[in-house]
Design a protein around this nucleic acid. Structure first.
Lengths: 201, 201
DNA sequence: GTCTATAAGCTGATAGAC
DNA sequence: GTCTATCAGCTTATAGAC
C-alpha cells in the first residue's frame, strides 16, 4: 500500500512499518517473521497482509525510504563551504543518525552483510554516483591544499564505519564502556578530534 | 560433537562447521536453515544432526572458536614495545583478519547486531576485561607522552570499526570502488596513515 | 477493515532400515 | 555412519464470515 488514502490506512501502514523496522533490523529479512511483526504492531497477521501484499513488500517499503535518509548527510556536503567544517558537519550528522535512527542503521547493515540482495541496484547506482561526486569534491579540496591528501573513497568509508559502528555494535559498545557513559556524546567529541587531525595539512 | 575421535568424524565435523559458517554468517542464526547448510556441506540433513545435536549446537561451536581468534590480535599488543608500532601492528593484524576471515567477521557482526543473544557473557566478561586491560596500557603510554591523549576505549572501537568495515560491508566497498581495486591493500595503507596521524603527539 | 480458519510449504528434529 | 521416510510445529499467504 504505497499511497494509503484514508487516515486509518495511513496510521496502520505506519504502525506496521514501525513494527517491521523493529523486527527486520534485528533479525534480517529471512530471520524475521510476520508473527513477530504482527505482535509488535498489535495487529493480526492477516491484517498486516491487508496493508502490504507480502513480507517482501514490507521490507521493500522500508528499504525505499531508507536510502534517501541514509545519503542525505553526504548530499549536504557543500563544495563552497570550508572543507574541514563541511567534513566535520558530515560526521556530526552521521553520528546523530546513528543515535536517533539505530534501527535504520542496523536494517542497512543487515542488508549489506547479506550481500545486498534487495538493494544492489541502489548501491551500484545512486549511492556509488553520489560517493564518486563527493570524492571529486574532496580531490579538488586536496589539490587546493585545503585538506590533507588522502584516498577520498576510503575517507568516506571511514566516516561510515566510525559513525555506524556506534549504532550497529551498540550492544558491544555499551558492554565495554559500562554504565554511566553516553556513547554517542563521547563518540561525537572523539570523532571530531580524529577527523581534525586526519584532515590537517 | 566437541571431540570427534575418528578421522572421518573429524573431517565431517569440519565440513559441517565450514558450511555452517558460510550460511550463518550470511543469514544470521534465525535466517539460516539446516537445508542450506546440508546442501553447502554436501551431506544429508539427518547426517548433520548425527554430528551436532541441534542447529543451536552448530552455531555455538562456531561462536566458541570465534572469540579467541577475534581477540588474539589485541592480546598481542605489548606494553614493552614502541607504542605507535604496537598499535599499527594491531591494525595490520585486524585488517588481515578481515581479508582472510571475512565470514568470521560477519558471523560476529550478525551476533552483535542482534544484541548478542548467544554471546552476551563473553562480551561482558572476557572481551570487556581484555579491552579494559589494554586501555590501561594505552593510558600509560599517553601519560608518558608517547602517543596523543585520546579516549582509549574509543580508540579501540575505531580500530574495530575501520578494519571490520572492510569485511562486513565488503559488498558496498567493492561496489563503490569499482573493479581494479584491492580494497584490503588500499585499506592497509590508508589506515596506517590515519593512525599515524591520530597518534602523533 | 478486521477477524477466525485454514491451506500449502518449509523447518528442525527423530525413527528405523541398511 | 548414512540414508529415506516422516513427524510436529512454524511460516507465509488466502478464503470467507462479519
Amino acid at each position: 500500500m504505497t499511497r494509503p488514502r484514508t487516515r486509518i490506512q495511513q496510521k496502520n501502514s505506519e504502525t506496521i512499518l514501525e513494527a517491521a523496522l523493529e523486527v527486520f533490523s534485528t533479525y534480517g529479512f529471512r530471520g524475521a517473521t510476520l508473527d513477530q511483526i504482527a505482535e509488535v504492531a498489535g495487529l493480526s497477521k492477516p491484517n498486516l497482509l491487508y496493508y502490504f501484499p507480502s513480507k517482501e513488500a514490507m521490507h521493500q517499503a522500508l528499504l525505499e525510504r531508507l536510502l534517501d535518509t541514509w545519503l542525505d548527510p553526504l548530499r549536504e556536503m557543500d563544495e563552497a563551504g570550508d572543507p574541514v567544517a563541511e567534513i566535520l558537519a558530515y560526521v556530526r550528522r552521521k553520528i546523530e543518525l546513528s543515535r536517533d535512527y539505530p534501527r535504520e542503521s542496523r536494517l542497512f547493515a543487515n542488508e549489506i552483510l547479506q550481500g545486498a540482495p534487495r538493494m544492489r541496484e541502489a548501491i551500484e547506482g545512486d549511492l556509488k554516483r553520489l560517493v564518486d561526486e563527493k570524492a571529486a569534491v574532496m580531490i579538488r579540496w586536496m589539490d587546493q591544499g585545503r585538506i590533507a591528501r588522502l584516498p577520498p573513497h576510503h575517507l568516506i568509508f571511514s566516516v561510515w564505519a566510525l559513525t555506524q559502528h556506534y549504532a550497529d555494535f551498540d550492544m558491544q559498545v555499551r558492554a565495554v564502556l559500562g554504565p554511566d557513559h553516553d556513547p554517542f556524546s563521547e563518540a561525537g567529541d572523539y570523532l571530531e578530534a580524529l577527523f581534525r587531525k586526519l584532515l590537517a595539512v
